[in-house]
Amino acid sequence: MATKPDIMISDGPKGMTPIVKTVVRFAMGIIFMFGWYIILYGHLTPGGGFAGGVILACGYVILTLAFGKELGLRKLSDMGASIIDNTAALLFAVVPMFGFLFGWYFLNFLDKGRPFQLFSAGNIPLYNIFIGFKVTASLFAIFMALSIFGRFVSKLVDEEEEG
């Protein structure tokens, strides 16, 4: 991995003005905490894996916008995003198959617990977490592919045509 610590990149000349960087540093923790709250309490309150995952992905997007792509990619590289994305989707496809052991596909076979507790509702929090991971990773990957890598590809094409 790169040797430079995060703080050197974040204080470097890349990215936006110090005002934005300072605000983002404050907001970052809150955004991630809120995203995780939405994912983990998805079976009790409005929200869930998708909404929470979008919030988390927005956290990474803000990070990238404020500090430049170097830091964003170091926190969640495109390879890492792809692996998280596929693993979460695979788990989401495989866990319902365990339901066959209990009779039906997609059966909610874990203990339901008491209503309105954090650990309740059987499989549903598990699915929310998978979806949360998947949406975070894939939205950030889409953002990267469309903004940074997209521009990069066009530049490559330009160079090819010129040279």
């Binding site: 792809s82 692996i83 596929n86 693993t87 989707a89 695979l90 496809a93 495989v94 319902p96 198959m97 596909y105």
Partner: peptide, 13 residues
């Protein structure tokens, strides 16, 4: 549906 769906993601991994 479950097998091809799981295999599609497993494949990429």
């Amino acid at each position: 549906t479950a097998i091809p769906l799981a295999a599609a993601f497993l494949n990429l991994l």
